[in-house]
């Protein structure tokens, strides 16, 4: 059984094929990193998996169930959650409200207009707990739009894992962060994704080789290598296309 698999997934934007037959199998609990140069199609892959864009052909399965025709909210309800490369939060709601919103569906509140939020003890405690975990408790009642960049990124991660999804997709969670911030964010990510399947796009090679069980290298919409870190590092094609250039 796989947590997530892509089978010959392709995507065209107009006449140009951006994703050119990607196949991937990710086992439950695996930490899987996708690397590749700018414009390789990493974010597009995430958009296809999470249902933001329809695929042109191929199949995507989540826990052996086809999801490639489902809208994003249905995919999310099946246990797949993603973050965004460009921070995507509810900027006019407080930090606490952002997290509480992210908890609502998974806790069965649906579109309820009869249960007052202030009386949902378990829900509110879960949101407070998340605040602590993200180290944002001091910023609880600040509008999310007013947080610092690193804080917003932390909130974004928090909202992604809040619903308890079993498969987590993180798109460059540490981009634009300083070294200390990156270390902090990675520790956070390790903690909150424990026991979950993690698929992460990341540019920072140190982070990637530290974290990943498996690395996939995507270049021009194609997988040119996929395997354990050592194998990928040793791969000639990867070195030529990508890694070598980066490490110099």
């Amino acid at each position: 059984m796989t947590a997530l698999s892509l089978r010959d997934v392709r995507k065209n934007f107009g006449p140009t094929e951006i994703i050119r037959g990607v196949s991937l199998d990710i086992a439950p609990g695996e930490r899987h990193c996708i690397i590749g140069p700018n414009g390789a199609g990493k974010t597009t892959c995430f958009n296809l998996i999470s249902g933001r864009f329809p695929i042109s052909s191929g199949e995507i399965l989540l826990n052996d169930q086809r999801i490639d025709t489902l809208p994003p909210h249905k995919i999310n309800r099946l246990g797949l959650s993603r973050s965004f490369q460009i921070t995507s939060i509810f900027h006019r709601l407080s930090v606490f409200e952002n997290l509480r919103c992210a908890l609502l569906w998974s806790r069965g509140y649906r579109y309820s207009f009869w249960s007052p939020l202030w009386r949902q003890k378990a829900l509110n405690e879960a949101a407070e707990h998340l605040l602590e975990e993200l180290n944002l408790a001091a910023r609880r009642d600040i509008l999310a739009g007013l947080l610092s960049y690193a804080e917003q990124r932390a909130l974004e991660i928090g909202m992604t894992i809040a619903g308890g999804a079993s498969v987590i997709l993180l798109d460059e969670p540490t981009a634009g962060m300083s070294n200390t911030e990156t270390d902090y964010a990675m520790a956070l990510i390790r903690r909150v994704t424990q026991g979950k399947t993690l698929l992460m796009v990341e540019h920072d090679m140190k982070v990637v080789f530290d974290l990943a069980d498996t690395i996939t290298v995507l270049v021009y919409g194609q997988v040119i290598a996929s395997g354990p870190p050592e194998a990928v590092r040793a791969n000639r094609a990867v070195q030529e296309a990508y890694l070598g250039a980066l490490e110099e």
Partner: peptide, 21 residues
């Protein structure tokens, strides 16, 4: 209520609401 809060959320960021279910 949850509906009222999610109405605010979709106002702020329509797309993100989809990815929290």
């Amino acid at each position: 209520t949850p509906l009222g809060r999610m109405a605010n959320a979709t106002r702020d960021n329509y797309e993100r609401a989809q990815f929290i279910g």
